[in-house]
Design a binder for these strands. Structure first.
Lengths: 353, 353
DNA sequence: TTGAAAGCGCTAACAG
DNA sequence: CTGTTAGCGCTTTCAA
């Protein structure tokens, strides 16, 4: 009567109600071990005897036990989830990165939570709260966090953060990116070096593209002192993000209307560059003869275009997998060697320039 | 000495250690109310007096309290997370759907967990375990779940499931999709109706594309009895998923090598159709004069191609938002009117055919 | 309305 | 190596 601690036939204490999902206790009871041993058998097989391991596994398979990771996360303070925030998923520029991130995380037992912030960071705040509330083991931000409020909340939460796709002197925590300014400069120098003297740009209106383009224009002005010092001397068409093939087509028309002599266009995305290529074809403008076209991103299709597109290659896959391993290292308490990485970029010269 | 239940100055019981994230108890103490009242003030403001509401909100803002949703989920058995499984994110065909899904969920306070199954469903099993373990309020599958093992686990878990992007007579639970067979049939009839008599296809090798194409070929054979009854009479080039612009280019070359007289190609993606367009241009084949091209997906760029691409429009946005609302309705205990929806498809006729 | 008690299902930290 | 004891931070349930 005292202790109903019989293992085989408990009086009738909280019998596992039929249909309910089994818990560690159910498994423990059926395997004749303590719940803690079940936990150990599952999370750290080496720490239990072969007999227990085997009995536990047998029961787990038989009853179809799937550990509740919410409970585990609450107890261990490790959720094994990582949140990623992208401006928008349908820009496709970030896909490689998201793919590498998911893969890298999945391989180590982590799951990805995806959030879209939009380009106008209005939703950013609610999103941040939804993320922090789930106590992820890490957050990957596409672009750097601009709002001071957001930076503070993230910092206060103590969650490891990787900012990506940009560089800054004052990262919240870790950083994997490249310099948009340097891209602007490099492309301007490249086009100038190829003899182009009527250089133009079609750029998205998001903050990174704007900075990139400012440097692009400034570099052109430096290289061609005759143009003066006003950036407006470098014809630029600004289109709303996310960019599209269509915005490339209209962008080129607009530029030509402003200045028919343009001989080079730097586009802030490959998709847009493709639109420029297409529009040039439709207008009978020869590429690269009359017009050089440079894109950004080096998406999968770019090398197969006609002519193959010269573009700035950004290694989204590298960014994603480095971000994944930085977060995992940090989450598992390993020291992180280099928390700030510049993955750089390469101008891939192809037929369009 | 008995009960240290003084509100203002507790003896020294678990003082909120500096730097630790605040919990309901901290907020409750500072606001001079019970933890439960904090919970109510946050989740159901109407159920609490204005004074308490205000005091709680003040403290929440002041200390930057963000509720731990893992703990909340454990206690309430509602995680407010939905898992989505896509074959791969970089096919871009599913992006619209994922975007609509994220948006629809975020608007109601739900978060998306994204998993990539790969096209070879080898990882599918581990992924399923990772998902079920997190006790999401719903799972959205891209394509129907083929493995019997997987279906059983999902069913046993009791989690609401929405299968998408396909139709089946025996859904696990809910379903939002369209018929790949009907698409195959419709496109074959469309091309035949436009007078094409040497109809070919370039298709991915995934299961849905295969079924679609089988019906496509069979319909062509029915419409042109002279071809016999062997599907091989309809030239088909099978390429590995995910498809790309490059596979469209090589696919067309391969088809022409087999039969130079081909006058129509049905491609299993818009990206691939674009490759065909490009290759035709390079080879001097006139589209649509000599060759009609039809894609699948109606991606954003398709209307801007040259010529604009005729394609099968699939409303990924609709699929995503319907899936979101089905899951949310189910999660919140509302009756689900029509758990199986055929969103259909439309052949959008443009310049390429 | 508000509060107190009792867990949700798991694992950290100790003992044995 | 194995078990016991306490929670993790929240919400359900019931009583006041």
């Amino acid at each position: 009567m005292e202790t109903p601690a019989k293992k085989d036939a408990p009086a009738h204490p909280r019998k596992s109600r039929k249909g309910a999902t089994p818990t560690v206790r159910d498994v423990a009871r059926l395997a004749g071990v303590a719940p803690m041993s079940v936990s150990r058998a599952l999370n750290n097989p080496d720490s239990v005897s072969p007999e227990i391991l085997q009995r536990v596994r047998e029961v787990v398979d038989r009853v179809g036990y799937v550990p509740n990771l919410l409970a585990g996360g609450l107890a261990s303070k490790k959720s094994r989830m990582v949140a990623a925030v992208v401006p928008t998923i349908s820009g496709s520029v970030f896909l490689e990165m998201v793919q590498a991130l998911t893969d890298g995380l999945a391989a180590r037992g982590y799951q990805l939570m995806l959030g879209q912030a939009g380009y106008e960071n209005s939703r950013e705040d609610a999103l941040l709260e939804a993320i922090i509330g789930r106590r992820p083991d890490g957050v990957v931000l596409t672009g750097i966090m601009r709002s001071e409020q957001g930076r503070r909340r993230l910092l206060a939460s103590g969650i490891p953060v990787v900012e990506t796709w940009d560089l800054t002197d004052s990262p919240i925590d870790m950083l994997v990116g490249f310099s948009h300014e340097q891209i602007g400069k490099a492309v301007a120098e490249y086009l100038h070096g190829r003899g182009r003297r009527k250089i133009a740009a079609i750029s998205a209106d998001d903050e990174r593209a704007v900075r990139r383009n400012r440097q692009f224009a400034d570099t052109v002005l430096t290289l061609q002192p005759g143009l003066g010092t006003d950036r407006k001397a470098v014809p630029t068409c600004v289109v709303p993000a996310p960019t599209s093939l269509g915005s490339g087509r209209t962008g080129l028309r607009e530029l030509l209307a402003r200045d028919p002599g343009i001989d080079a266009v730097f586009c802030s995305s490959d998709m847009m560059a493709q639109g420029v290529l297409l529009e040039a074809l439709a207008l009978g403008i020869e590429v690269p003869g009359q017009l050089a076209v440079v894109g950004l991103g080096d998406l999968a299709f770019s090398r197969d275009l006609h002519p193959p597109l010269t573009t700035v290659r950004i290694d989204g896959t590298a960014i994603g997998s480095i971000a994944a391993s930085l977060i995992i290292d940090r989450a598992e308490g390993r020291p992180v060697e280099a928390p700030v990485r510049d993955v750089g970029f390469v101008i891939v010269e192809r037929g369009s320039s």
